[in-house]
Each structure stands twice: as structure tokens, then as C-alpha cells.
Design a protein around this nucleic acid. Structure first.
Lengths: 244, 244
DNA sequence: TAGTGGTCTAGACCACAAT
DNA sequence: TTGTGGTCTAGACCACTAC
């Protein structure tokens, strides 16, 4: 099967995005084999009837995803990698639904409280301001997967009438018009304490994979802190790094 | 102090890179405060005497680093975050040297061997091909930090006369003309076994933070596998995610 | 309505790698 | 020498936001 690309100029989807999507699918379908060289920018741009900068933008998105590698004077090649699903800026909920498992959520507690000093600094709000504290347990079928503690300033969102079992935190934020654009995460590990062990069906002292996150909206404001603890047999993080 | 930008057109450093670096420094120095709005693209481009696409490219690099957030119809703002050092595509060695600590390396073993089936699939080489197996212990002062096992195809590099105590693996690869451009990492955790515990001054069964990595060069070829185990009290991973 | 970033074009010159 | 991607320009039109 030969590489066959086309664009729909009446579509509201940007041209570079259409092209990037088709190239990505061609790679995933094996039409573009690992290690294979992609035609050069001018040829691709001509075939599709788009300009070279537009074609470059399409290729760059795949380079950023770690699927293509480019080298001046040489060309563009498909990375010889196994297929992977990258970590994206979505909630754990989205991740699990997409992978076709059977996730559910228990809300252990949700309450208004006063922010502590460290949290206030991280969220850049005033000490003493009110925040929501949420604690949830994530399950796959009957198996506990993660214990998630989150802090959201009350000024960001009213959680008093929100059902977090029905949809994830990020989906709830989106529904309230809050778009999370940047997140800083710190990944580590430690031993489970007695309470964590009980909730996660682990033994006290078992290793847990931990993630601390600060999330920012499209105005640059910190909107959420998260401290999650995962059972390492059921979850890990995948990260793709690209040198530009 | 006002924002003051300039470019040197005689420099070989790309204009967008010069501008991005100055903006980054302005943010780190507090000249551009968190939450502050940056002048719009046309104004910045005019002040510097560069075109709008060039200015956009500079701004985009900072968006990708999670330092700026842009919103159509609104403008560009500095993210209200604490200062962080991002995970980059460098070796642990580079990381530690840069943070001013006193790192050293012990090479526990280095030998030629035959690749196993799983490794051959991941590296996309033939089963039975020869590889280098390296095991190293990373220390901070007297304290063990990480146990690192790496596999490199013999076709990539000859390690028989290389001193890995003097410089890191990635530096050695660079010196051999191999440029690592993409890496896929999986981060998890597990218990230390008896040997790991002894080498890392931990107890058997203690939690270790683990990282499995496959690295690719600028032709898309897999050039290295890594399985590292870190002491969680001394090391964690930071990741910045950006929604585009 | 005014101003912002998002997209797109049609060129140009350059640095680098392969031959 | 040829071909590649890297950089840069000077415009254009559009979608979205705030007023």
C-alpha cells in the first residue's frame, strides 16, 4: 500500500493537522515502515497542494511526538520504535476509558477547608484562602488502582454540587470553562502507610508510585494540586523526550 | 527594570533562539513577573526588527517549556509557577554536574554478550547479535544514588576501550558521533532485591524508583536500552506536560 | 468593534551531509 | 555538486475574546 495523502480545504480542521494525522496513521498502519525515509518537504507539499511551511508544521508535530527524526542534508525517517501511547495532558480517567478497561471512582471525601502555607505558595493564592479538598479512590473493576488527593481553590470552581464519580476532575474543570494547558509533575515513590495500604489492598510498607502535580489554566493560573499514589503493579508512567 | 530585547544578526545563533533565551531569562529574573502579560507578537517583532513568524517561533519554544500560555483574542501570559528545572534529554551525569553536586561512577561490569529475544525486539536487531552490557553505580559523594544497567549493540559503538567513570554514557555516544534525539521512558517502582539493596545501601524490599528507557539516534535507530533503579529519597523525575 | 493569536502562502538564502 | 532540512521574510485572512 502506497502512501496516499489528501487534504479537505473546506474542513475547519487546520491543514497541517489533517496532514499530521494522516502521516501518523500511515506510520501506525505500517504504510510507512520503521526506518523508512519520508519524501522530502517540497515533494510532499507539492503532492498535497500546500505550502512548504504548512508541510513543515505537520512534520514537526510528529517529530515532537517522537515518531519522526529529521536530519539536515539527509532527510526525514520513521523512528524504529515499538508502538506506544504517549502520556498526555488528560486525566487518569480519560486514559483508562480509552484503553477499554472498566474504571470507576469512589469519592472518599470532599470538603471546603483553609489552604495551608505550602499549598498557598504553590497555587499562588493568599494563606487562609478557602480550597476544596477531594480524596478519591480509583478502581479497575474490583481492584483499587490509585488514591488521589486534590486541592482546588474555591475561587476556581464550586464543587459543592458536582458528582466526581460520574466524570473525572479534568472533565469537570473543562465543563466549567477551565482549560488545563500546562502541568508540572514530579514522579517518585515511597512506602504505603497503614491507611493507604488498607484502601489500596496493599500491605503496609509496600512500594507506591507517587505523582505530585501542579496544573495551570490557559491564563497561567494554578488551578489544581494533585498528590496521587498508584499501585506499581497496575500503573506506570510513560514519557517521550525529544531533543530539538 | 523594563523588558529589553535585542538580537545580534551577525551571530550564528538563530534569531528565534536568541529571543527565546532572552525572554526565558527575563522570566527567571522576574523582569517578566508570573501572570504578567507579554506584549503582542507584532509589537515584539517590530521592536526587535524581526518578522512575525520568527517572533512566533521564539514564543512557541517557551510555550513548549511550559513557561508561557497563549490564548487567542487575549494575549500571552507568564505561567504563575515556581521555578523548576525540566527533565531534559541528557544523562543523569549531566544533570548532577549541573546541579553542582559531587557525582562519581563505579563501573561494576562491562562485557560483550549475546542479545536476548526481548532486547533484540526492542532494539530492532537480529536475535543472536552481540551487545555490550554495562552495569554502573552512580554516587553522590559517598552515597549510592542509582544502579544503572544498559545494553548497547556492538554495531553502534565499541566500548572496549572506553572509561565510563570519566564521562557519562551519553557523552561517550556523542563523542562517537551518535546523537540521541528521542527517548521513550517508562517510570515505575518496585522492591529492591538483595543485591540491589547491598549496592544501594538500602534494605531488601525497600522501594526503588525505576526507569526503563529506549533511546534512538537521529536516524531513528534504537541505540541504547537502560534499566535504572534510583533511591527514592535522593531522586525523582520532573515532567512538564503542555496541551497544544 | 478592536485587538489578539492561529493559520497559510510564496518565495529566499543558508548550513550540512552525501556523492 | 546536489539535495536536504533550518531559518527568515512580508505579507494575508480568519477565529476568538473582550469591550
Amino acid at each position: 500500500m502506497a502512501l496516499q495523502l489528501s487534504v479537505d480545504r473546506s474542513s475547519p480542521v487546520p491543514l497541517y493537522f489533517q496532514v499530521a494525522g494522516q502521516l501518523e496513521q500511515a506510520i501506525n498502519d505500517g504504510v510507512l515502515a520503521p526506518g523508512e525515509r519520508v519524501p522530502n518537504e517540497m515533494v510532499l507539499a507539492d503532492e498535497l497542494g500546500v505550502s512548504r511551511p504548512t508541510m513543515r508544521q505537520a512534520l514537526q508535530t510528529l517529530v515532537d511526538k517522537g515518531m519522526l527524526v529529521r536530519k539536515r542534508g539527509v532527510g526525514t525517517q520513521v523512528v524504529k520504535a515499538q508502538i506506544r501511547r504517549p502520556v498526555e495532558l488528560t486525566s487518569l480517567n480519560d486514559d483508562l476509558v480509552r484503553t477499554g478497561r472498566d474504571p470507576s471512582t469512589q469519592v472518599l471525601s470532599i470538603k471546603r477547608a483553609t489552604v495551608d502555607a505550602a499549598e498557598a505558595a504553590e497555587l499562588r493564592i493568599k494563606p487562609g484562602d478557602e480550597v476544596w479538598r477531594v480524596e478519591r479512590l480509583r478502581l479497575i473493576g474490583e481492584q483499587p488502582l490509585a488514591l488521589m488527593a486534590n486541592v482546588i481553590p474555591c475561587s476556581v470552581l464550586d464543587l459543592s454540587n458536582v458528582d466526581l464519580t460520574a466524570r473525572g476532575l479534568y472533565e469537570t474543570l473543562r465543563a466549567a470553562g477551565i482549560h488545563v494547558r500546562v502541568a508540572h509533575q514530579e514522579i517518585g515513590c515511597r512506602r504505603a502507610d497503614a491507611r493507604e495500604a488498607r484502601l489500596l489492598s496493599e500491605r503496609r510498607g509496600s512500594p507506591l508510585l507517587t505523582m505530585r502535580r501542579t496544573a495551570y489554566d490557559d491564563a497561567g493560573n494554578a488551578v489544581e494540586l494533585g498528590e496521587h499514589a498508584y499501585r506499581p503493579a497496575l500503573y506506570s508512567f510513560e514519557v517521550t523526550l525529544v531533543d530539538r
